[in-house]
Design a protein around this nucleic acid. Sequence first.
DNA 1: TGAATAAAAATTGTATACGATCTCTGATTG
DNA 2: CAATCAGAGATCGTATACAATTTTTATTCA
Lengths: 244, 244
Amino acid sequence: MTKPVTSAELDQRSKLHEVFALPQGRALDICLKLQKAILEHRLSPGLKLSEDEVGEIYGASRTVVRASLQALAHSGLVSMEKNRGAFVAKPSIREAHEVFQARALIEPAVARLAAAVITDRQLAQLHAHLDAEHAALHASDMGKALFLSGNFHTEIADIADHRIFAGMIRSLISRSSLIIALYWKRSDTACESHSHHALMNAFEKRDSAAAESIQKSHIIDLHSGLDLKEKPAGGTSLSEALQG
Amino acid sequence: MTKPVTSAELDQRSKLHEVFALPQGRALDICLKLQKAILEHRLSPGLKLSEDEVGEIYGASRTVVRASLQALAHSGLVSMEKNRGAFVAKPSIREAHEVFQARALIEPAVARLAAAVITDRQLAQLHAHLDAEHAALHASDMGKALFLSGNFHTEIADIADHRIFAGMIRSLISRSSLIIALYWKRSDTACESHSHHALMNAFEKRDSAAAESIQKSHIIDLHSGLDLKEKPAGGTSLSEALQG
DNA sequence: TGAATAAAAATTGTATACGATCTCTGATTG
DNA sequence: CAATCAGAGATCGTATACAATTTTTATTCA
């Protein structure tokens, strides 16, 4: 009894295929499944992704698994070390800063574009998305909520209909998910919803300037919700260095 | 009698490895060689890159060639079609616009960052780079001149020391090279040098604002140097459609 | 006991083989 | 003569096998 593929999943699949130069055929499926698992925090940063093991799970040979892992490495979700294999990426504090700096530059510009061209249909879709996010949050399914929260941003990029920016944002959102898994310090995860709703308001009014400004604040707010202070060099540095 | 690897090449290699998640081992070499060939316009957009052929040339098996081509596909230099193979990418007019819109947003911000932290040593390096560019231009080696001209931009990203932006810019510059190959309309290719020298001036004064503004103008100027008008639907559309 | 070493196991890197798909050529037919 | 179709050849997608490297384990010696 296989779960039928939903239209939303098909949609995402075709979009991803357009935007990224993802592998084709079976490798794409594995890619998406691994990606989803990582983005929902079912696979923790640093976890080893053995080729044999992944192949076993998805019933594929190492050849296609390798292609998938390579693709994920390019989008920043996986890091590959020569002769050692693939691991769920573990962004450094520095990379975390860089990712949110990049998002703070790009996403507001894209939100501005999106506000100028959004259709009623797309507005409704975004609304439905927020509802789903709310439902997941209410069901305490944090993994799914986070996944959907990220998707909200990529959907805006798709609405702006700018493939280059959309590809960049997709990669940045993916990395952000890992960064949040590692460095999130706030307890009120629900705070996102507020910003997202404010953004919806701006979209409904087709107010480009407001959308840009709200999105910028939102990203900066997310950035400030991370605990990105370098640990003091004394305490953990030795043990860290030895087990690293 | 093998040509020794220059320090500049080694440098680029290690940098690329950091920034992109490039394949490792032999695949990396093939990647860089193909990339260089494409960026110097020795391989034209649309050209087929047969796996067997490439493997023959570089003395590698299809396995590593495939990994290389996949990597290049991820950076936008190569497009892969299922069951048909890999081709040197042929950016559409739309993609050309998008690439330069992205550059116009990102590169000025990065130039600003770079101006704030550039060292004297790096200034000297950039000067040397401009000299090499000038020399290539004087020797009518357009391929090399264009390659170097692109590298100037990635070097600025490296100076800004922002890996995420640097990776984005590298990809954008690569695509730009293809776009220029397809759509450049100006005869005075040397115009770039002027902007680059102006930028150097700003860097020497550590004038962030000027660097940002000059870079923005430079990108917009490049964008306007392209012939990106859609061809009228009547004339060439049929023949184009048939031979496409 | 603990460190150093060497052999064994596991994992990745690469080559090759085979099946699937596409492309091209040439014959056939209206 | 043009268009269609069939088959051969070429090319890609995937699985598997072997080589190279790393990791683990067992052993030895101080």
